[in-house]
Design a protein around this nucleic acid. Structure first.
Lengths: 230, 230
DNA sequence: ATTGGATTCGAACGTTCGTTCTAATTAATT
DNA sequence: AATTAATTAGAACGAACGTTCGAATCCAAT
């Protein structure tokens, strides 16, 4: 279905006459996105109605559609903004270190810090994973893949440096699981801040990966011993 | 709202005239639960409509309501069945060992095995966590709490045996995260079976917890050294 | 003060939602 | 074979869903 030439597509590739109007649009969109994030976090994407969003942001139902084309497009905007932000911050921080173990600890801290500060956004990002379809979904998936690849790279660097041998994939996925599960149990009064949590999880994960994975030679020796014990 | 004496409450506290009818009811309910689990897993609880369930189970919309009182009650039945099963199997298996580390490995294997075989049910259980309200929700929460307490107990036993000092809560939650995150990435052709996965994760987690957490004495020594390095 | 685009709104669209009513059909027991 | 209870289906209920439309209102630039 082609769009008529007189009506602009609602939502994003925005081109306005005045720059101040553009700024206003962007600011207002940000507010709406914030409220929407809150509601999606509380009730889930499917569970939250457009009327819920209207109530939360104090704007009429029709008014919302001035800022995005559809509910799905709104979810895309939230996910993209959240993920882009965490990725950029990570890249900046990683530039400050060259040592593999420290770089992994930076990764963990960055992830947890952002997770705890923007708990709502991250819950929406984790929880509403397979909702977006087609182009929108694949764009988010691409950002996610880059984030994942960076972490695998950190893991490979550690293995190279210390001559370790373990599955980077399982390790990274286990680490992501540890960190992303937080939104189901975190309680600031019991569990401390991001630094403390990052140190604890970093300890478990890194010591586990380092002292748990033998070199190839040692692994063969261990397996022989295990076979003998039966 | 009181129920009339002539109509029985649909769904559960079932009392039939004949035992064979009871058996039939139970079998049919099981089939419906199976199909519903599949649909909930694919589309999510909110995203799946009663008409989707009707189509998937080959039964009319109204027919479904003979077996449960509401959509929420259906989710409760699925979660209860899934969780009860995994808990019972765990208890049986734990009786076969008294050694702390081995018992933790049993826990991990039991969890992963059930997770991979009943991937759909476990995804529904993990994903649709805060949907149930009031009595139904608190009953599921109680089962979950028991499961959690068992794992904390295993952790405390390990600490006692080896004189370790770490946060059982953080450790258990990290472990749950590692395991429960699987449904987002598991691929049987790449990641092997439950035993292999359980061994890998068990290695990371156990070695991490054991060699990562010092005794109280060692911890003080380490902190002093860290302070000196700055 | 006026103009023109950006923004917001009330009201309604057609669709789908979870649920329920009544009646028909099936299976088990006498 | 007759009776009774358990099971299924067709059709519809009101409510809520995402979305759209045309008109009103606001705001910045002239």
């Amino acid at each position: 279905m082609a769009r008529s030439a007189t009506t602009r597509a609602p939502g994003r590739p925005r081109r306005s006459a005045s720059p101040s109007a553009d700024a206003r649009f962007h600011r207002r969109l940000g507010e709406v996105l914030g409220h929407a994030t809150e509601v999606f976090c509380e009730k889930g994407y499917e569970g939250a109605s457009m009327r819920d969003l209207s109530r939360a942001s104090g704007m009429s139902l029709a008014g919302l559609y001035h800022y995005f084309g559809s509910k799905e497009h709104l979810l895309y905007l939230i996910q993209k903004h959240t993920f882009t932000t965490i990725l950029e911050k990570l890249k900046t921080r990683l530039d400050n270190s060259a040592e593999p173990e420290e770089r992994i600890r930076i990764f963990i801290l960055n992830h947890l810090e952002y997770f705890l500060v923007n708990q709502q956004g991250m819950k929406v990002l984790s929880h509403e994973d397979e909702v977006l379809k087609n182009g929108l979904g694949s764009e988010i998936a691409a950002i996610k893949r880059e984030y994942y690849r960076i972490c695998v790279g950190l893991m490979d660097a550690l293995k190279r440096e210390r001559g370790l041998d373990f599955s980077s994939r399982t390790a990274v996925m286990s680490l992501f699981g540890m960190m992303n599960w937080i939104y189901t149990w975190y309680n600031p009064r019991v569990d401390g801040g991001a630094e403390e949590l990052a140190r604890r999880m970093g300890d478990i994960f890194l010591r586990g990966v380092i002292s748990g994975s033998a070199t190839r030679v040692e692994r063969a020796r261990l397996q022989a011993r295990r076979r003998q014990q039966r």
